[in-house]
Each structure stands twice: as C-alpha cells, then as structure tokens.
Design a protein around this nucleic acid. Structure first.
Length: 900
RNA sequence: GGGCGAAUAGCUCAGUGGCAGAGCGCCUCGCUUACACCGAGGAUGCCGCAGGUUCGAGUCCUGCUUCGCCCACCA
C-alpha cells in the first residue's frame, strides 16, 4: 500500500467500480423496503456550486445509509431547463458577442439553446458523479424531455378544465428587459435612495374644500401621474374626511379625478393621501378594482412612457421621465416640497432590471383550492420539516396566497398548451390539435406564452416516476421519503410540489423536507457569480478529495446556522481520510495476506482470549455505531461525522492501534479485533466518505465489492462491556496525567527510543486495572514508565517519598525520574496549583453544604462528592510536596525560568 | 413595520440544564518501522449585555445590543 491515500486515483477507480456494480440502480421488483428521493434538478445554467455539492453529499449519505440498512433505494437525478435563467445566460453570451436574440432570430436562438443544454446538462450530472453520488442515472430526467412535457400538458389541461387556470388582465411584475411577467417570488428587493415628491392636487371646483384648495399627496413616481385616476385617503382620517367625494385636478394634464376613501391607505405615511394609479402599482390596482376605477396606462411594456397627451414625457424611459415630470410640477407650482426617500424597489431576480408593475393579460393558477390541502399536509405531520421551524414559514406563505401568474413572455420554455380557434373557442390540449374540438375550425392560434419554469418543477417527484401511468416505480417509490434542498426555494418549489402532488396523486410528494445550510463566502457574503466570490466544489475535490468535501458537507449541512466557507475544515478531513488509510496500512503490513494481497483476518477470538483493551474497543465500537445510526436516522450528519472522526482518530488510532501494534501476530487476538473494529468503523463512515472507506475495506479478504453492498454494522451484544470501558478509561486518564506531569517536569527529555522508560511509578491507591497486568502494562508502555511495586503495594499514606505525587480521580500514585536524583518539584507552580485546587475545593464544599445536596439527583451529588474527595487528596499531597520541598531542595532549583 | 436565525478560543464552528469543546493557528518537545498529511504536551474564554427561573444556566424565560436572512400594501 502507498504511504498516502491518493484520492484522485482511488476516486477514479471506485467511481468506475460503482458504475460497474450499478449501485444506484433501483429495482422496483425487489422485496426490500423502499427509500426514495428526487434530486432537486439543478438549473442548466452553468457549473455546479457548493450548494449543489452540499446537497448532493447529504442526499448520497442518506441513500448509502439506507441501502446498507437493507432498503431498495431509488434516487432519481435530473436537470431543469430553467427557462428564464437559461434564456438570460444565452442572452448575455449573445450580448458579449455583440449580437442579440432578435438579431439572430428564433431558429438560431433555439439551436443555440439546444447545444447549451446538451453540453452543460451532461456536465452537471458528470460533476455530481465526481462527488461519488449514487443516483440512479438510468432514470435521469430533463424537464424538456418529451415524456415530461406530456405530464406538464396533462396537468395544465386538467387545471384548465377544472377552472383552476384562467387567463385575464391583471397587474403583474413586469420586467421590461426580459419583456415578461415575473412571479412575486422572483423579485429581488433592493434599497433605493430616491426623492419623495409632495405634490399639490388642486380642487376641481369651489366645492372642493374651500380655503384648503385641494390635497397634497406624496409620491416617489411623479412620472405615473398621467395615469392617476383618483386620490385616496383613509376613511378614518379626520384631515380629509370632508373632501371625500369631491374632485381634484391631476396636476400634469389637468384631468378631474375623485377623492375616495379606502382603509388600505395608511394615515401616517406621507401626507396620508395617496394618488391612485391602478395601471402601475399593485395596491393602487387593488383599490381601483374595489372602487370600480378605470385603468390608465402611462408606461408601455418596453418601460417607456406612453403619454400622447403629454409630449414632454412621451417615449422617455422611466428614469428619464421622472426628473422631467418633477420639473413640470415645479413649473406648474404644484410641487410643495421634496425630501429624500429610502425605500425598497423590486428588481428582476434574473437580470436585475427594475420591475414595472403593469397590467397585462396573463395565465393564472388559482391558489385557494390548492393551498389548503398543502397546509393541512404539514399541520397533520404527513410532511415534516428539518429543522422544524421552516414549517411555520411554509404555512405562513400558504395563508392569503395570491393567484400564481404561470405565464411568461419568453422565447425559452414550455409553450402554454392552449389554442384559440377562429371563432374564439379557447381550449387546452396535451397533443397539439389540428382543429377546434368545439367547431372543427382549422384556424388555430397556439398561445404564444411559455410557462413559468416552476410550474414544471412543481411536478418533479411524480413526473419522474412515470405518472400518470401506474408504473411499478410509482407504486413502489412514491411518495418519496426525503426531499433535501436549500432554504431559498421553499415557496417557489417545495410548497408547490406539495400542492400539485396532493391534487394529482392524492399523496404528499415526500415526508421529510431537509433544509440544508447555506454556504457563505469566507467574508460572510452570499456567494454569487456577480460578486465572483464563489468557490468551485470540483476544485475542492481535486485539491482535497471528494471524501473530504463530502465530510465537510455532512458537518455543515444540517447545522442551524449558515456557515462561512472555510477550506481548513476540508483540509483536516482530507487528513482524516489519510489517517484511515494508514490505520489500514498497519494491519496490511503486519497481518498475513492472501494471494490477492488482501488481509486475512485471524478468526474471531473467543471471549476468554480478549484482554482489557480488546474488550474496551469492541464495547466502544458498539456504542459508537449505535449513536451514529441514530444520528443518521434523525438526519444529524454533523453528529455522525464528528462522532466517527473523534472515535476513529482519538480512540482507535491513538490508543488501540498503539496498544495493538505489538500484538499483531498472525493468529493473535489483537489483529482479529482491530480488523473487525476497523471494518465496522469504515462501514459506518461509508455513507459519508465512500471512497476511502471502500479503498480501505477492499484491502481485507472476504469483503463485498463495495461496503455499499454490504450490511450496516450491527455489533453483537457480546461486544458491550461497561466494566472494560470504565477500567480502560481509568488507564487512559492515568496515562495522560503521567505524560503531562513527565513532560512538564522533564521538558524534552522524554524520547523513548533513546531513553526507554523515563520514570518509576508506584501506585498508592486506585482501581484494580492499575495493579494488575494488562492495565499496568498499557500505562507503562504508553506513558514510558516502569512500575516498581508490582509485588507489594506501599502503605497507603501520603508524602514521605522522594517522588512526586499525582492524583487522578480515584487514583493516587507517585513517580520519580529513572536513574536521576529528582531535580525537585517546581515549588512555585505547585503553590499555584494548590491555590487553584483549594478554591475548587471550597466551591465544591459550599455547594454540597447547601440545598444542592438535597435537591439535585443522587448521581450528580455523588459525582460532586467524589470530586470533593479528590480535591482533598490533591490538597494533601500538594501541601506535603510543598513542605518537603522547602525542607529539602531549595526553591528555585525547579527551573523557575519556565514560570510564566 | 413584522417574523426567524445567529452571537462560544486568534479564525471557522460543535455543544443534548450538571467540571466550557473540536479543527486550524500559536508555544514546547519528538524525524518512535501505519501515518511529519504524524505523535506527546501546553497556552488561549465576561459562552454579546442586563435581568429572571432553577440546588445548578453557554443551554430555559424576558428585555436589550449587533449581524444576517425572510416577509410586508413605507405609496
């Protein structure tokens, strides 16, 4: 075996091996219980980012875990055409080439899109493979596939026929650059620093308010004044009550408009009077509808003014028209004052252009009927969120949901499957018809709009399993079990999947929704292409290995907090992979191997042949596997990887491997135990770090072709051994205390190769394992000491010896350097420690004397009592050392230079 | 304006009412035949602030501060 784990080589090998073994293939005919997931299809807009990688690693860990637990796992991958996002990408490319989609035309644009999908779509799935994910690649779907398109049309037609989809003019979020409607969820609000204009609307006649002569309104958008149809005030506002019902003169063109009262108007904002422009503001539209006001339009779909009656503004852009309108108002004497205004302005999520609310005809999906069942599914617990707080956000959104604008005016996407005939019959279809089903007219006009990309995504979990056909996959793997995704698309996608699934399959689409953490750039900013602060996951894989990236993802994925990217964490996990490799290598070096160079494990030793360390590590393995199993089951991969890391490195390697080293004879128990314990650990790690674990496990004879195909470790009950754990922990504590004391007193003079044992130790009191052989040998070996009182324990009395005394829990022992007259203890540091222990002791004593002793649970009191006793003993030996030190060796000889 | 989350070592983060932890970095020591991508030891904390509950609070409650995210009809 190589001295280091070579991630790149091993990964290539194991990826091929897993493909060959067809690990990810889901067999709907198997008898195993099912576990299924739908991979959130990445947008085919570019390379994979860290969020995809994190989510992929998280899902693959679950897939592998359940496969090893005996489930038939079906994890379906795929990609999303992402109409608006992809169109924007292509448009930016065209712009960079100095052209545009209008210049090259539809056909060339379509060809361009097609080759983009072919190239990038495959690349994205390939990148997921590089992470070692075991999706069922044979089931990969693309939302533009023919079969998928059929499902979309079917759903659309049903919703249309049931009256849940309708077309009508309404105010929408219009992106003038995209030339399309945008849904409420795709608006990016940004803070703008604008001007708040206070504008006087004069009374139209003497009846209107007498001496006050009209109303002053406040607006940020004077350019929309030509489309004003009213001024609204709150019905409870005493300032304006008498003016309701009168008319005012709109100050730019002098039209007469009424003063109306509506509760939506907030008294405290601006002047409490609101100009009503139903054509260009969502609230105004609502108020206008309520009062039966007409909709005037001053801004066209291209974002330019359409004010034929006001030539000064006509055809200007909004940005140009605003100051122009303001100066017209000033010239007319209507501008009362101007002040700075900080407010939020909507931008197109995809291209950043300022959204214009405009009234246009669009297709709408009625939400009321779909939302309530979706809410109920979560309230009843059929769909659970992890972390659970996201249920509240989900439910909150479903309340008072406005109808969903499902049409877009894009070149790219699924055409709305609706045609209108020459006689005006409108009908939805699945296969495009040649004549009208109502009147047989052959003059059909296919609706030019395309569907919101989220309409197709909303069908993902059942569409990919063959719905509406009653496929074996659908009956076997649907509803899916887990959906893992990012927080940002909870409404956009997750909620809509629940809605459509309940409507069309009568089932929830999934039971557990995992919302994983968002990875921020190291500076705490959101990673984004425009900021250029993104981290390429594939570069991380190349630098540190896929296992390290996956283990990092497991660590951060289900943490509550969003996390700043920190490459050092990935590095440390890459070292962990190397550690596992070298732990395997030790066994490979020392144990016999078969003709294929695989480790031949000695037979399972009878219990009677196990010594303390063996019993301890078997017991700890059982405990760790049990804990990790539970962690996986509650999606706590942070705990799973942390527990396994800690155990593998700091129990298995640091202690057991060191102790077992000398006992690794071909037929010895240590090799047998080490092999079994390592294999169990590798198996438990496999869902998270599949490459290195397979690479290591495959060095053993008799292993499955991949750990993924083997069973999840189930340590037998006979491995449990609380007594061994307790005894071994005592040995480890003593060893650590001795190492610490030795190194503190002797500095660097502890090189074991040169010196052998460096101290002589006599145990005064302590657990049996320190008096008897296995435990005593462990301490001697690991701490580099010899015991000199094996035969007869010394009298149990403190002080009166040449050595220093150590108190470790219930244990008390004394030691002195080998062959040296003790240099004498460092009296100053001992005095400091004494002071510390005395304070600790006083605290413990006070606590135990108070109500604590009566109220706290007995175990806790007992523990504190034991601490008190330990503190008492330490105080005794420290005082003793101090006084004998003063009598004997002069203070200061203990190298005061090391004092700090 | 409303809601949610976060605040723990120099940095990035775990932490489940009972002795404050990890990784990285830092200091000392060791090139020990699995691993120097290693090993041994060490230093480093007002657990954001102020109250409260409790025998006991980093952990539960209330208020506050700062940061972040989401929502919202601040026109």
């Amino acid at each position: 075996m190589e001295k280091q784990f070579t991630a790149a080589t091993e990964e290539r090998h194991w990826r091929e091996e897993w493909e060959r073994l067809d690990i990810g293939r889901a067999n709907p005919d198997s008898q195993r219980p099912a576990f299924s997931m739908a991979l959130p299809p990445p947008n085919v807009t570019g390379r994979l980012h860290l969020g995809h990688a994190t989510n992929g690693a998280l899902q693959d860990a679950l897939a592998r875990f359940h496969r090893m637990r005996g489930a038939e796992v079906c994890w379906v991958p795929g990609t999303d055409h992402a109409a608006i996002a992809t169109q924007n990408v292509i448009e930016r490319q065209l712009a960079a080439e100095g052209t545009s989609k209008e210049t090259i035309g539809r056909a060339a644009f379509d060809a361009r899109v097609e080759s983009w999908y072919a190239e990038v779509g495959g690349e994205i799935l390939e990148q997921l493979r590089r992470l070692g994910t075991t999706c069922d690649w044979s089931r990969a779907r693309f939302t533009l596939d023919d079969a998928y398109v059929q499902v979309i049309r079917l759903v659309f037609r049903d919703l249309f026929d049931q009256g849940l989809i309708y077309r009508g003019p309404r105010i929408v979020n219009w992106c003038p650059r995209c030339g399309s409607a945008i849904s409420d969820e795709e608006i990016d609000f940004q803070e703008h620093h604008d001007t708040f204009f206070y504008v006087r609307y004069r009374a139209a006649g003497p009846s209107a308010g007498g001496d006050r002569d009209g109303i002053t309104i406040a607006t940020a958008r004077p350019e929309t004044i030509p489309a004003d149809v009213a001024v609204a005030v709150n019905p409870d506002d005493p300032r304006y009550r008498d003016l309701v019902g009168t008319t005012l003169l709109e100050p730019l063109t002098g039209r007469e408009i009424p003063v109306i009262a509506d509760p939506l108007v907030r008294i405290e904002v601006g002047t409490g009077a609101l100009k009503i422009t139903p054509g260009h503001a969502p609230d105004d539209y609502e108020i206008g509808q309520r009062h039966g006001l007409e909709v005037l339009t001053a801004i066209g779909l291209d974002g330019r003014l359409r004010t034929p009656g006001l030539a000064a503004l006509d055809t200007l852009t909004v940005a140009e028209a605003r100051p122009r309108a303001a100066s017209l108002l000033r010239a007319a004497g209507a501008m009362v004052r101007e002040e700075p205004l900080v407010h939020m302005v909507g931008h197109c999520d995809r291209c950043g252009t300022v959204i214009e609310p405009l009234v246009t005809p669009q297709w709408w999906c009625r939400m009321a009927e779909l939302a309530e069942p979706a809410a109920e599914a979560v309230r009843s617990g059929r769909v659970r969120f992890h972390p659970p707080r996201f249920a509240a956000e989900y439910l909150g959104w479903l309340e008072g949901l406005r109808d969903w604008c499902v049409s877009r005016q894009l070149w790219l996407g699924h055409r709305i499957p609706v045609s209108t005939c020459a006689r005006g019959h409108v009908f939805a279809w699945v296969d495009e018809p040649v004549q009208c089903p109502r009147c047989d007219s052959a003059e059909l006009r296919h609706d030019p709009d395309v569907l919101d990309t989220w309409f197709s995504s909303a069908l993902w979990p059942f569409a990919i399993l063959g719905w509406p056909e009653p496929t074996p996959e659908l009956s076997r793997f649907y509803p899916t079990h887990v959906l893992s995704t990012a927080r940002g698309i909870l409404r956009l996608w997750v909620a809509r999947m629940v809605m459509t699934s309940l409507r069309f399959t009568g089932e929830v689409p999934f039971h557990d929704v995992l919302i994983h953490a968002t990875v921020l750039a190291p500076d705490g900013q959101v990673m984004s292409k425009s900021k250029g602060n993104g981290v390429d996951p594939l570069a991380m894989v190349e630098r540190h290995g896929a296992d390290a990236v996956r283990a990092w993802a497991a660590q951060i994925a289900m943490g509550i907090q969003d996390t700043r990217f920190d490459e050092r964490r990935i590095e440390s996990l890459a070292r962990f992979a190397n550690k596992l490799w070298n732990m395997t290598r030790l066994l490979w070096d020392r144990l016999p191997r078969d003709s294929d160079d695989r480790i031949l494990l000695p037979p399972d030793p009878p219990r009677s042949e196990l010594e303390l360390a063996d019993r301890w590590i078997l017991a700890r393995t059982a405990e760790v596997v049990e804990r990790v199993t539970a962690s996986f089951q509650r999606f706590d991969l942070t705990d799973a990887i942390d527990t396994l890391y800690e155990f593998s490195w700091h129990e298995l390697a640091d202690w057991y491997w060191e102790l077992a080293k000398d006992r690794l004879e071909p037929a010895g128990t240590a090799g047998a135990v080490a092999g079994r314990v390592l294999l169990a650990t590798l198996a438990a790690l496999h869902p998270i770090m599949p490459f290195v674990t397979d690479a290591c496990a495959s060095r053993f004879a008799g292993q499955p072709a991949s750990l993924d195909l083997g069973a999840w470790p189930e340590p037998p009950d006979s491995w449990r051994d609380p007594e061994a754990v307790e005894a071994m922990v005592a040995c480890l504590d003593v060893t650590r205390a001795l190492r610490s004391a030795l190194q503190e007193s002797l500095g660097g003079r502890t090189s074991r190769t040169r010196r052998g044992p460096v101290a002589v130790v006599r145990v005064r009191r302590g657990p049996d394992c320190l008096w008897t052989d296995p435990g005593r040998t462990y301490v001697a070996r690991m701490a580099g000491v010899v015991f000199d009182d094996a035969a007869e324990p010394p009298p149990d009395r403190p002080g009166s010896s040449a050595g220093q005394v150590l108190v470790v829990g219930p244990t008390e022992l004394e030691w002195r350097p080998v062959g040296e007259v003790g240099a004498g203890p460092d009296l100053a540091s001992i005095a400091r420690e004494l002071a510390r222990v005395e304070v600790h002791h006083a605290n413990l004593a006070a606590n135990l004397a108070g109500p604590f002793a009566a109220r706290a649970p007995a175990v806790v009191v007992q523990r504190e009592q034991a601490k008190l006793e330990e503190a008492e003993r330490r105080i005794a030996v420290l005082r003793d050392t101090l006084s004998s030190g003063r009598d004997g060796v002069p203070p200061g000889q203990g190298d005061p230079g090391r004092d700090r």
